[in-house]
């Protein structure tokens, strides 16, 4: 019976104008952003011809748009899941059939999750097709990393589906549910991203100033003094960065968009590593030592963002459990 509810939900969703509009938009954005990133990479001219565009460069633009559109996609599929049934009088009928109450909400979850899942699969396949057609670096390992990224992007949409469904349960009308879900989306994604650097700056203070000394290279004493000041500056800068980024990343951890951004950064870039124990993202100085940068396995890359993955999953679990409890508790008809 859960399947009957889910099946109807899927049919209803994919026929809706809003689904077709956002899904179509995501497909177009995917194809265009990937093509444009690839063309830009080749047109920069600073890159050797044989060097293929890395995935994180290709997907950078797509990921940026996806954090916005993916969230709206999830909300669009969930915000009227229950209110629409109530407004159309069908909820009373569903509740009068021999269904357990939770079968209705589980069917709604399943229907929305499957609709999003299939949509994300189509988007992933199209993205892959675009990259292959344009001759990008699509090895077996790259495909696995793209699939992993798309999976987390799917989880991201799932979270907003849950937020949409939650508000469709507690709101009196679909329009109220939509507005509430959009407000939460704005707080979680935009407000937290905006607040994070402000709070981090407030906590860490102004960054240390670089020593401004005019020196004569022949004056060994002055040179030594400059070297010592620069060393002190570097130490202070490192401390400041630790403080600043420590707070910044912690706040961003509450933002689903921040989490997806972090996860995608590591999943799509096998060379990216995390400095152990500091919680600060640094890029290895591959250009300094002129050595081929180390590449991490996908499992290792994922381990760098385990906290972000756990946060994202916790968010999803929290919102789905809250929606479930609210649906079961509330007298809806």
């Amino acid at each position: 019976m859960i399947l009957a509810i889910a099946e109807r939900e899927i049919k209803e969703s994919i026929k809706s104008r809003r689904f077709l509009l956002i899904f179509g938009f995501l497909l177009i954005i995917g194809a265009l952003s990937l093509s444009s990133s690839l063309i830009s990479w080749h047109s920069w001219g600073i890159v050797e011809e044989e060097q293929k565009a890395p995935l994180w460069v290709l997907f950078g633009q797509f990921n940026y748009y996806f954090t916005l559109l993916g969230a709206i996609f999830g909300i669009a599929l969930g915000f009227d899941a229950i209110t629409k049934e109530r407004e159309g009088g069908t909820l009373k009928i569903l509740l009068s059939t021999p269904l357990y109450k939770d079968q209705i909400i589980l069917g709604k979850f399943l229907g929305g999750a499957l609709t999003l899942g299939v949509s994300m699969l189509v988007i992933a396949l199209l993205n892959l097709g675009v990259l292959m057609t344009l001759g990008a670096n699509v090895t077996g390992s790259a495909i696995l990393r793209i699939a992993t990224y798309m999976f987390f992007a799917y989880l991201y949409t799932l979270l907003f589906l849950g937020i949409g469904i939650f508000f469709s349960i507690i709101s009196k009308s679909s329009s109220n549910a939509l507005i509430s879900a959009l407000v939460v989306f704005l707080i979680l994604n935009l407000a937290l991203s905006t607040i994070a650097p402000i709070v981090a700056h407030f906590y860490a203070g102004d960054p240390p100033k670089r020593p401004q000394i005019s020196i004569n290279p022949n004056d060994k004493e002055a040179m030594e003094k400059y070297r010592l000041e620069m060393e002190k500056y570097r130490e202070e800068m490192e401390k400041w960065q630790k403080k600043y980024f420590g707070v910044f990343t912690k706040i961003r951890m509450f933002s689903p968009e921040g989490n997806l951004y972090e996860i995608s950064g590591y999943v799509l870039n096998p060379q990216r590593e995390k400095e152990e124990g500091e919680g600060i993202v640094v890029y290895q100085g591959s250009y300094e030592n002129q050595q081929k940068p180390k590449e991490y396995s996908l499992t290792k890359s994922l381990s760098f963002v385990s906290a972000n993955i756990v946060t994202l999953l916790a968010y999803i679990l929290l919102i789905f459990v809250a929606a479930y409890i609210e649906f079961m508790r509330k007298e809806l008809y």
Binding site: G88, G89, T90, L91, K92, I93, S96, P98, L99, Y100
Partner: peptide, 18 residues
Amino acid sequence: VEVKRITGYLPTEPGLYQ
């Protein structure tokens, strides 16, 4: 659930999928 198996319900406003 047992009760719902043997009952039928017509609400004031028909609850049908348009």
